[in-house]
Computed example of a mutant assay.
Amino acid sequence: MNNWIGWALAIAAVVAGWFSYGWQGVVLAVSLVAFWLLLQFSRVMRLLQKAGSAPKGSVGSAVMLHTKLRDGMRLMDVIAIAGSLGIRVTEQPEVWRWEDEGGVGVELEFADGRCVRRTLTRPEAGDETAAA
């Protein structure tokens, strides 16, 4: 959800509470908004705790991760799908990388907090024979 929509709904709840029940309605609306924010914070903390316990930048299958991704996804959505924190490749532009055990990797470029480009990279044939 867009941040502006969330804040507009919170303000609308406070105004509706005021017109419906006076100061008690405002207290109820503020309580509901605070509860909603605590739920969102709890969701993010559980996601980061789960992702933090996995090896950094690793994913079960980079190809499967790549098929589940789409443009416009937020980094938190990608972390939830990958199940681990990515490795930051560059700061400008913001690029993150996940890799599986076979050396196949997924690089995602983010702009304004949203995925704008994703690239699947496979190891070269010479790399496989050298590893064997």
Rank of each mutant, 00 (worst) to 15 (best):
I81K: 06
A80T: 10
D71T: 08
L39R: 10
G113P: 00
G72I: 11
G25K: 07
L38S: 08
M64Y: 09
V30M: 08
D77M: 05
G17Q: 03
L108H: 00
I5F: 12
C115T: 15
G17V: 04
L48F: 14
K56T: 11
V33P: 02
V116M: 07
D71A: 07
D77C: 02
K56C: 05
G57Q: 08
F110R: 05
G60D: 07
S42M: 09
E107C: 06
D112W: 08
W4A: 15
V33E: 08
A54F: 00
G52D: 07
E109C: 04
R43M: 10
A16F: 11
S58Y: 07
L75W: 06
V15C: 07
A111M: 10
Q24D: 12
R114P: 01
F19A: 01
V104T: 15
L28S: 05
W18Y: 15
Q92W: 01
V30W: 01
L28W: 03
A8I: 13
T90D: 12
F110Y: 09
G6A: 11
D77Y: 04
V95Y: 03
K68W: 12
K68P: 00
M45V: 06
P55G: 02
G102A: 13
K56P: 00
Y21A: 15
D71N: 09
W23Y: 14
V14W: 01
A82M: 06
F110Q: 02
A82E: 03
V78I: 15
W96D: 02
A12W: 06
K50M: 07
V14R: 00
G83L: 11
K50A: 14
